[in-house]
Design a protein around this nucleic acid. Sequence first.
DNA 1: GATTTCACGTA
DNA 2: CGTACGTGAAATCC
Length: 580
Amino acid sequence: MASVPPANPILGVADVCDGQFVALAMVTEVGAGLATATGAVASSSWDRAVAMVTDLERERRPRWVVWSNETTQTLARAGVRVARCWDIAAVHRLLFGGWKAGADVAWARLHDMDVEGIPVDAPVNLFTHAEHDEAGGAPVGADGYLRPSWVSGGWGSTPERMAQWAQLAMEVVSLQQQRLAASEQPTRVAATARSESAAEVLCAELSVDGLPMDRAAAESIIARFAGPRPRTEAEADELRRRRDEQVLRHAPEAGPVDLRSPAQVKTMLARMGIDLPDTRAWRLRELQSTHPLVDALLEWRKAERIATTYGYAWLDEHLGDDGRLRGAWTGSDGAAGRMTASAGLHNMPADMRAAVVAEPGHVFVRADLGQIEPRVLAAVSGDPALARATLEDDMYAGVAHDLQVDRPTAKVAVLGAMYGQTTGHGARALRRLQAAFPVAMAYLDRADVAGQVSRDLRTYGGRLIPMGWTNVNEVTEREARARAAARGRYGRNALVQGAAAELFKVWAVTVRARGASLGAQIVLCLHDELLVHVAGEHSDAVAALLDQCLAEAAHRWAPDASVRFVADVSVVQVWSEAKS
DNA sequence: GATTTCACGTA
DNA sequence: CGTACGTGAAATCC
C-alpha cells in the first residue's frame, strides 16, 4: 500500500474525480471514503457523503468502485442511482467462479494465494477489539493476506479507515483489470465485467424498490386456495385439519396419516393399492382421475403450497405497507451466472401473478426473449447454419426445415443437445442435427467432454465455470460414469445458460440506462423476462425501447450480427394479463 | 440445532 | 436419468 494521505473532511468535485474510476467505501454513521488513482479522501458525515456522491455523479459520471452491491444498495436507499459501477465481488465471481467474493477472498485469489489459508478473526471481545485498533494501521498482514481484523472490523469505523479501504479497492481493481487483460478475449471479458457490475446495481435497486403487488388481490387469491386468514393458532389448526380431511376421507382405513410426510403418504397410497416409487406430483398426475384419493391429494398439495410458502405469512414478511414485495437480489448465482432472488420472487405460483398490479396511472411493459437459448448457442458457437435458422421468428420451424423433421421433433432434438438429454426417440434427429449444425454441436461436445474430465470452462462472456467437483464416494464404475455424464450435461448447460444470462443482463442494464429519463423502473427480472413499471403515458415509448435495447444489447454482447434475437413485448395492467 | 431429503414453484 | 434456483417441512445426523 502506498502511504495514505490524511483524511479530509470533504473536498470539491475536482479534487476527487481526476480519473474515470472512483472507489467508494461507505457506512451510514461515518460518511464515505473515496479514492482515485492519486489519493484518498473521506467525508465526515453521511449527509455530506451523499451530497459528494450526488455531485460527482451529476458532473462526472465516474465508474464507482464498490466492494459489493451492499454499498450500491445503501446508495439506492438514499435515492442515489449511479450509472456506472465496478463491482469487485461481481468481477471476482466472473474471474474465479464460485460464490464467496469478500474482500479477503478477492485479495487472496488476485495474489495467487490459497483461499483455504485465509486467516480468520478471533471471536470479538474487548481485548481483541483493543488489539485491532492498535494494529489497524495496515490492511495487509505479514503473511500477505488481508488482516482479518480489517475485513471483519467494518469498513468505516473511522474516516481514515474508510479512505484506506477505498484506496485498497483501487488497488484491487487494477489487479482485476490485469487479469481481464490477460484473458483470451480481453475486450469481451472487460465488457462483461462492466455489464455484470451494472447488473449488481440493478439488483441493488430491485432489492430496494420491490415489485408492485396489490395486497387485497393477493389475499383473495390466498383465500381461494387456503381459506380466510386465521386469526388464532386454533383457527389455523382447524383449517389445516379440514384440508387434511378432504384427502383422508378417501382413505378411511389408512388410519392417522400426516400428509406432509412423503413416507406416510407413500404408505397410505400403497394400502389403497397404488404403488409408486415416490409421491411426486408428476407421478400422481399420471394416475389422475383413476382414484379420488389421487385427485384429492393433488388439490391438497396445491393448497398446502399456497398456505405454507405463499400464504399470509409470506405477505406479512415480504410485502411492505407501500405495496411493494421485496426480496434480496443477486447478480449471479454460484453456477452459470443467472440472477437470483429470494422471497419467492422467482418461483411465485402463476396464480399469484394476478396480484402483481401496476400502481395507479402506471402500467407494466413486459417482454420476454423468444427461444433465447438456441439463439445464444448460434451466437457463441459461431455456427452459420444455426445463425440462419435464427432469422425466423420461430427458429424451431427453421431447424425443422433444415433437418427435414417436424417441429416438435426439431425442438426436442435441439433442447436435448443443449441439455444433454440422451434418452427418448431423438437419436435420428440428433444425427441430422450433427450433420446440419456441426459447429454448434462440436461446441456443445467440447463442453461435455470438458465437464466429464473435470476441466474448467469459460462462458462466452468469460465467466469461469469451475468443474473441480469434489468426488464423493464413487464406489462403483457405474457411479463414476454416471457422475462424469452428469458433469458433461452440466458443462453443456452452463455454457448455454450462462451465455444467455450474460446477454439478458446486458439487455436489462441497457433498459435501465435508456429508460431512466422516462422514469421506467425494472421491477422484475425472470431469466428471460423483464417487467418494467412506468407511467401509462410512456407505455408505447418503453415498449419500443425494449426492442431497441435488445438490438443494442445483442450488438454489444456479440457484435456478429448474423444471429437474430426476438422479444415478445406487451403492455398490461396486471402481470397475469400477459400471455406466455 | 444443524444438515439432508423430499417436494414443488419458476425459468 | 435435461439444468439452475429458493422455499418449507420432515427426516436424519450429530
